Simulated scan of single mutants.
Amino acid sequence: MPYYESAIKKFVCFASCHFEDISHVAHEIYVALTHFQSLVPMMDRYVYNDGTIKNLMSLTGTIPVTFKDKTYNIPTLM
């Protein structure tokens, strides 16, 4: 599924609109999603120790890492 920067901007803003430059954040996410096709953006609620709840966005999937001429798909949650 292709992701577009405008859709990612809305996704990021839903998670947290306190970023000074949402366009830059959305572009970096777009680059990561374009380069690593196995990554998928996800929204989830995070509960801090003080009980504060925030919606956070993450990129979940695998990233290929080459080691000694073999490629390993490393699971990641960014």
Rank of each mutant, 00 (worst) to 15 (best):
L59F: 08
C17P: 11
P75E: 09
E20I: 13
D44K: 13
A15G: 11
S38C: 10
Y4H: 08
I74A: 02
N49V: 06
D69T: 06
S38K: 11
M43P: 03
V25R: 02
V12T: 00
V12W: 00
T62R: 15
K70I: 03
H24A: 12
F11M: 14
H18Q: 15
F36D: 01
K70F: 03
D44S: 14
P75W: 10
P64K: 02
E20C: 10
V47P: 03
K9G: 04
S16C: 14
L77K: 13
N73S: 04
E28S: 05
C13T: 11
V65N: 01
T34W: 09
V40M: 05
A26Q: 01
H18K: 15
Y72V: 12
Y30C: 09
V25H: 00
A26G: 04
S16I: 09
T60Q: 07
I22K: 02
D69R: 13
A7Y: 05
F11P: 01
D50I: 10
S38T: 11
M1P: 07
T71W: 00
M43F: 14
A15R: 04
F11W: 14
D69G: 06
V25P: 00
T60W: 07
H24I: 10
G61S: 06
V47E: 11
L56P: 02
I29K: 01
F67Q: 06
R45C: 11
K54V: 13
Y3M: 05
P2S: 09
N55K: 15
H24R: 12
H27P: 03
E20F: 13
F67R: 06
I74L: 04
L59I: 05
K54G: 06
Y48H: 12
Y3I: 03
P41W: 01
M78H: 08
N55A: 15
C13E: 10
A26H: 01
N49C: 05
R45T: 13
H35E: 12
A7I: 02
E5Q: 14
P64N: 04
F36S: 00
P2K: 11
D69V: 08
Y46I: 07
A32N: 04
Y30T: 12
G51H: 02
T62V: 15
V65R: 03
T76Q: 07
F67D: 04
V31R: 08
V65D: 01
V31M: 06
F14D: 11
A32C: 05
Y3P: 00
Y3A: 06
Q37K: 13
K10Y: 09
T76A: 11
T52F: 08
I29Q: 02
T60G: 03
D50Y: 14
M1V: 05
E28H: 02
K9L: 06
F19Y: 12
T60D: 09
H18V: 15
E20V: 09
M43E: 14
D69N: 07
A7G: 07
R45N: 13
Y48E: 13
S38W: 10
Y4P: 00
A26V: 03
Y3K: 03
H18S: 14
K70R: 12
G61A: 03
D21K: 13
K54M: 12
M43T: 15
I22S: 01
T34Y: 10
D44L: 12
D50V: 06
G51A: 04
H18M: 15
